[in-house]
Amino acid sequence: MRKDRETELALLKKRIQKFGINPPDTARFLRENVQNFTAAELRLMSKKIVYDSIVYYTQESADFMETAETMDDWITFLSVVKWFGDQAFSYLMTIYTGPAGEAILTPPQRSLRSN
């Protein structure tokens, strides 16, 4: 019985090092009461730490995916703005310099913009 408790305590410490403890009050509770826990209670606490980590990382990944989707929307929007800018530049160069001037000025404009 004692060996089982020591094994569970070692597993609990290992899981705390690997996953961490999210709420600080859980860490304080463990420090104050770990000597009073049975092997079954230590096992349940260990499972709770793993479950809390799963929930935390799942929520964090959802936040990252939302950020990625927002950035993708911005990239799409800015690509459309760039296209309109290219069209406006081409139109203005054709009006002010004619087709030959537009053909001469458009490649340098694109190379300067890409940097």
Rank of each mutant, 00 (worst) to 15 (best):
L30E: 06
L30H: 00
L30Q: 00
R31T: 05
E32R: 15
E32H: 10
E32K: 12
N33W: 02
N33Q: 13
V34N: 00
V34A: 08
Q35S: 04
Q35N: 12
T38N: 01
T38D: 03
A39F: 01
A39G: 00
A39D: 00
A40N: 08
A40I: 15
A40K: 15
E41F: 01
R43N: 11
R43G: 10
R43M: 03
L44C: 13
M45G: 04
M45R: 07
M45Y: 15
S46C: 08
K47G: 13
K47Y: 01
K48W: 12
K48E: 09
K48D: 03
I49N: 02
Y51I: 15
V55W: 14
V55F: 09
V55T: 11
V55I: 15
Y56H: 11
Y56D: 10
Y56N: 10
Y56I: 12
Y56T: 06
Y57K: 15
T58F: 14
T58G: 11
Q59W: 01
Q59C: 02
Q59P: 00
Q59V: 01
S61K: 14
A62F: 08
D63S: 09
D63W: 07
D63G: 09
F64R: 15
M65Y: 08
E66G: 12
E66R: 10
A68M: 10
A68G: 05
A68D: 06
A68V: 14
E69K: 13
E69N: 13
E69T: 06
T70C: 09
T70E: 15
T70V: 00
T70I: 06
D72C: 03
D72A: 02
D73N: 10
W74M: 12
I75Q: 06
I75W: 08
F77S: 03
L78I: 05
L78V: 10
L78A: 08
S79A: 12
S79Y: 06
V80M: 00
V80K: 10
K82W: 06
K82I: 03
W83E: 10
W83A: 02
G85K: 02
G85Y: 00
D86E: 01
Q87S: 06
A88E: 06
A88S: 01
F89E: 00
F89H: 02
S90K: 08
Y91G: 00
Y91M: 10
Y91V: 00
M93D: 02
M93Y: 07
M93T: 12
M93Q: 04
T94C: 03
T94M: 09
T94L: 09
T94A: 07
I95W: 07
I95E: 09
I95Y: 09
Y96G: 03
Y96F: 02
G98I: 05
G98L: 05
G98S: 08
P99T: 04
A100Q: 09
A100L: 11
A100G: 04
G101W: 00
E102F: 03
E102H: 12
